[in-house]
């Protein structure tokens, strides 16, 4: 255990993150990268990008509150140090996605009202479930909720968004690539740290599995509303702009309907949950379908 926790050093984080993939970036991307004209000159696409980015800000604000709140609940110094680095990662994510809202034309004085207007209520419910555990200083449930469920979801969502944007919007794709790299550490911590704690606290399993089931429900509801509200696919078709034919989980995203994309993302994340939870000794609970 001691060796394993020693990897969670600030020095390791410095060499792997700020001195590595974030070197020479400005808000997560190269200084010469900008939002594409296609988005900035089309009100429907710009509005859709704002709505999507608000969801990322809301999710990352939740992750920031959770990771910082878990520091004092952590039972060992290694975990506290790791969560301190994760807190800075999450704060950076909030900052880079907030900056994207500004880049998309949101005025600084309108930021909170734009977030309130577009925040997906299902995502807020998802966040409240997690933060309830964090408020109770429940490290085990908090890390499963944050580093397995929330980060597992973010990992898949960011990957899908990354492949969708790689050709069309390199600036946003570059920002996402940095957040995906951060998520690798976060999911790794979740699995590696929690596996032994679950083994030592088997009586806690039913309650944690119930939380996973509830959080998964709100996650699916979030996806459902997000894909229902999107107007980008219809608008691209209306203006005769061909969609990017990028591959995600073996599917051509340029050919899928929004319903099919929602199903693909939901199934991918749930499948990942099942595998990740199984590895740490938790039984995945299938959520109700919203």
């Amino acid at each position: 255990m001691a060796d394993f926790l020693n990897a969670y050093s600030i020095q390791n984080w410095l060499e792997s993150c700020p001195q590595a993939y974030l070197e020479d970036t400005v808000f997560g991307h190269s200084s010469d990268e900008h939002e594409p004209d296609l988005i900035m000159e089309n009100e429907v696409l710009r509005h859709d990008a704002i709505r999507t980015t608000v969801a990322l800000v809301v999710g990352e604000r939740c992750a920031l509150a959770a990771s910082s709140g878990l520091i004092n609940a952590a039972p060992d110094e290694g975990s506290k140090r790791f969560l301190a680095t994760q807190t800075l990662d999450e704060a950076r994510h909030v900052e880079v996605f907030t900056q994207r809202l500004y880049d998309l034309g949101v005025a600084k004085e309108d930021l909170e009202s734009v977030i309130a207007q577009h925040a997906n209520p299902n995502l807020v419910k998802f966040a409240e479930l997690l933060l309830e555990k964090v408020d109770k200083r429940d490290f085990l449930a908090g890390v499963v909720g944050q580093n397995i469920v929330l980060e597992g979801m973010a990992f898949s969502v960011f990957e899908m968004m990354h492949v969708m944007n790689a050709a069309m919007n390199p600036k946003f794709a570059h920002t996402l690539q940095g957040t995906i790299a951060d998520e690798r550490r976060h999911v790794g911590f979740g699995e590696n740290r929690i596996g032994s704690l679950v083994r030592d606290n088997p009586a806690r399993k039913p309650e944690i599995e119930k939380m996973q089931k509830e959080m998964s429900y709100w996650m699916l509801a979030t996806f459902s509303q997000a894909f229902r509200d999107t107007s980008a696919v219809d608008e691209l078709e209306r203006i005769g702009q061909e969609r990017t034919h990028s591959n995600y989980q073996g599917a051509d995203l340029g050919k899928l309907s929004t319903n099919e994309m929602e199903a693909l993302l939901g199934d991918t994340v749930l499948k990942e949950f099942k595998v990740r939870l199984g590895r740490i000794g938790l039984d995945y609970q299938s959520p109700d379908r919203p």
């Binding site: 792997s16 790794g188 699995e191």
Partner: peptide
């Protein structure tokens, strides 16, 4: 050892 996620 997977250094990116620190898994053995």
């Amino acid at each position: 050892y997977c250094m990116p996620c620190m898994s053995r």
